[in-house]
Amino acid sequence: MTRTFSRIVETVADFFLIFIIVFGIYIITHGHLTPGGGFQGGVVLAAGILLLLVAHGFSFARKIPEELLSDLEAIGGIAFILLASLGFGQSFFYNILWHEKLAFAEQVGRFFSGGAIPLMNLSVGLKVVAGITSGMFALSLFGGEES
């Protein structure tokens, strides 16, 4: 049960991992322009990391410290709330960066548009990657039978 897969599987997984990660990052960063956003990209990235987990065996999960993941998750959450709080001059979640032309305020359709939304997508993506990965790692390490 604890045998990892063959060398071929590992290599193929490593190869595809690059594409999965690029695709995930694309989905997150273009969230305000194209379908997708923080959550979708985050799940895709998490799925990539989990592919590593499957291909390289579950002991791989031990190499990534649990604390790092929970820190990243917390940072993602705080960043999201801070960005939402920026709008307190008007109302919570008010997109002040865009309405006041402070940052990311180019014309709709350009990459640097959308105000706080791309930043929010980033923080949500961070939170989702860290959350799902840590949940899965906890699950896969559970019971300590693979060692």
Partner: peptide, 19 residues
Amino acid sequence: LTAIVIGVCVLIMAVSLVV
């Protein structure tokens, strides 16, 4: 989308409880 997020959280927790 919200419901999918919730669904995946519940699923991960449920499976870990099943274990």
